[in-house]
């Protein structure tokens, strides 16, 4: 019990919190990407695979060219290509988004193993550290937020930009409209399917960047399926976040905290060292169940403020194809 407590206290170390923030960048990009895509009505179920393939593309390009930043556009292109396949097969061919997404998940996972085989164990390439002068010397917040690198800072900016796009711009409102009720959006002169292509591609690119952030920053280098299961967590966090970018960002940090906690527990409970690292996954699913628990929501109805924070209604037309003749 006291071991548990020690591990818990360690969670409040500046160093621990700082490492949670630094390690969250990959999930942050991918979660924003998936949120955008789903908000526009297209579920990209391939995340777990496309993120992996993008992580490989990012690493390979950075490794071969020796320019780390070139890895990111390459990864974005891979993520975007997979996403566009889903959009195309749904919009043009009328195929089910879930089915296509799942097939593409499996395909890109296997492809990443096959293509990445010869890169396993190659020397890593990493994004250079860059602490923001001035800001990084603020007590607590400095080391926690501003003592990382450009990728981490861009992940914050992506969250903020996603939020602003969705809730503060005309385009963002239209994007929500096409995921909510496409025929109503169509009736208002909004080109529904064109925009669905656009936002799915944008979302896919962010998922790809998430992959590159992983292989070039979070856990350097290439091994067998390095990002496995993170994609599924992304899908869970989007729901946990109620399709709201800021709530989803909190979900990402929560997951990072769970991971850090599990790792802190290992020295205290060495016999469980095999099990502990996988605990955050079921824990996240449990959190998802809790926020969607009917009885809890009913109870929360008495507290409108809490209810508003916790409500999570999916975009109504999510997963459906839109067609007018």
């Amino acid at each position: 019990m006291s071991g548990f407590f020690t591990a818990f206290l360690e969670m409040f170390d500046t160093a621990t919190i700082s490492s949670i923030v630094a390690g969250a960048s990959a999930l942050m990009f991918a979660t924003m990407g998936e949120t955008i895509s789903e908000k526009a009505g297209v579920i990209n179920l391939s995340v777990d695979g496309s993120m992996m393939l993008a992580a490989l593309a990012g690493f390979v390009i950075a490794f071969e060219t020796d320019v780390v930043w070139l890895g990111f556009p390459a990864a974005a292109a891979v993520g975007m290509a997979v996403a566009l396949l889903i959009a195309f097969s749904n919009i043009k061919l009328g195929l089910n988004q879930i089915a296509v997404g799942f097939v593409l998940f499996a395909l890109s996972t296997e492809l990443s193993r096959f293509l990445g085989n010869s890169y396993v164990g190659r020397p890593p390439v990493g994004v250079p550290a860059w602490d923001i002068p001035g800001l990084s010397s603020i007590p607590f917040f400095g080391p926690v937020l501003f003592d990382h690198n450009l990728v981490v800072y861009l992940s914050y900016l992506t969250v903020i930009a996603t939020y602003l796009l969705m809730y503060r711009t005309r385009k963002g409102l239209e994007m929500q409209g096409i995921g909510e009720r496409p025929e109503a959006a169509h009736a208002r002169g909004i080109p529904v399917n064109k925009l669905r292509y656009f936002y799915t591609a944008l979302g896919g690119a962010l998922i790809g960047i998430g992959g590159a952030a992983f292989s070039l920053d979070v856990k350097l280098g290439w091994s067998d399926r390095p990002t496995r299961n993170l994609g599924w967590i992304v899908l869970a966090i989007v729901i946990f976040g109620g399709w709201h970018p800021l709530r989803a960002a909190i979900g990402v940090l929560l997951f990072g905290a769970l991971q850090a906690f599990a790792i802190n527990l290992i020295p205290e409970f060495p016999s469980l060292s095999q099990v502990l690292p996988s605990i955050p996954f079921p824990a996240m699913i449990l959190a998802l169940v809790v926020v969607n628990w009917k009885a809890l929501l009913k109870w929360l109805d008495r507290y409108p403020f809490l209810r508003a924070i916790l409500r999570s209604d999916p975009p109504t037309a999510i997963g459906t194809a839109f067609e007018v003749d």
Binding site: R170, E174, Q176, G177, E180, R181, G189
Partner: peptide, 18 residues
């Protein structure tokens, strides 16, 4: 053809030029 979960004002401006 309105968006039920959206607010009145969001329904009003959705699709307007600007």
């Amino acid at each position: 053809l309105v968006f039920l979960p959206f607010s009145v004002i969001d329904n009003f401006v959705l699709g307007s030029p600007g």
